[in-house]
């Protein structure tokens, strides 16, 4: 096997373990059940609407996947790395023949596989609800679900960055705050270029809006894109938009991981 192949095998060993840890955690099972429960509840709400059952199921279903996915990404990103330090399993794994960056990349890969699987599972359940109510799942839904997964992966890298140097509580707080700000970047920019234009606070907000991860990019349904309303039901984003969002998530997430690797590389495990 080539050195690259051996490195991949080590990363996969850590990823597989991270995946096992996540899948054996009851909290995740409860969260996924909660998402499915929310979808089931959307059936009741759909009955109350005027022949808009499928629309309600899709809206609530996607919101459920996104919300539960965010909780899972926060939980995994903050917990799984901090737990290694808190429970001192890092004393067992770092002396093994792997680089510290391989360990970190393995943790991320394991979390990404877990998030991909759980998001896919929730998407399949949602598709089942939609089809059983006479609707079609469609490409637009698939794009929306891919965008949600990209948002979760980006959030995980941010959580891992904070976990690389701070406690689980602080990491959760920082990551959660960044997610809230990042989901509201259009409002932040509008505020900075509107009422606060020309003021120091406006300038600060402009910088913040351009530096924080733009999570709004991934949950676009119901929002505006270049003056047009984007909706999962009609006029949703194209594949090229999804590709651009994936590029953004890769670059921003990659930078977070690089920074996490740099911090982790010189850390003393006492």
């Amino acid at each position: 096997m080539s050195p690259f192949g051996r490195s991949l095998a080590r990363i996969w060993a850590v990823a597989l373990n991270t995946f096992r840890e996540a899948m054996r955690n009851r909290v995740l099972a409860v969260l996924v059940l909660f998402a499915v429960g929310l979808m089931a509840f959307s059936l009741v709400l759909g009955e109350l609407s005027l022949h808009e059952e499928v629309r309600v199921i899709k809206d609530i279903g996607l919101a459920g996947i996104s919300f539960v996915g965010i909780l899972i990404a926060l939980f995994l990103g903050v917990n799984l790395l901090s737990k290694e330090l808190d429970r001192k399993t890092v004393f067992f794994v770092i002396p093994k023949p792997l680089h510290r960056w391989e360990f970190l990349l393995g943790k991320f890969t394991g979390m990404a596989v877990t998030l991909g699987l759980l998001t896919g599972l929730m998407a399949v359940v949602l598709a089942g609800f939609v089809v059983s109510n006479g609707g079609t799942h469609g490409i637009a839904m698939l794009r929306a679900e891919i965008l949600i997964l990209l948002e979760l992966l980006l959030l995980t890298t941010v959580a891992m960055l904070f976990s690389a140097f701070s406690s689980p509580y602080l990491s959760a707080m920082f990551t959660g705050s960044l997610w809230i700000i990042g989901r509201n970047t259009p409002e932040l920019s509008a505020f900075a270029s509107g009422k606060l234009e020309g003021t120091p606070l406006g300038a600060v907000l402009e910088v913040v809006a351009s530096v924080v991860p733009d999570f709004h990019l991934f949950y676009i349904s119901g929002g505006n894109l270049e003056g047009n309303v984007v909706s999962i039901h009609e006029g949703f984003v194209s594949w090229s938009y999804v590709a651009q969002a994936a590029g953004y998530a890769s670059l921003y997430g990659g930078a977070c991981l690089l920074l996490a690797v740099a911090l982790f590389a010189r850390r003393d495990f006492t």
Binding site: R10, A13, V14, L16, K96
Partner: peptide, 8 residues
């Protein structure tokens, strides 16, 4: 098994 994988 995990350790064995890391050792290649």
């Amino acid at each position: 098994d995990m350790v064995g994988r890391i050792y290649g």
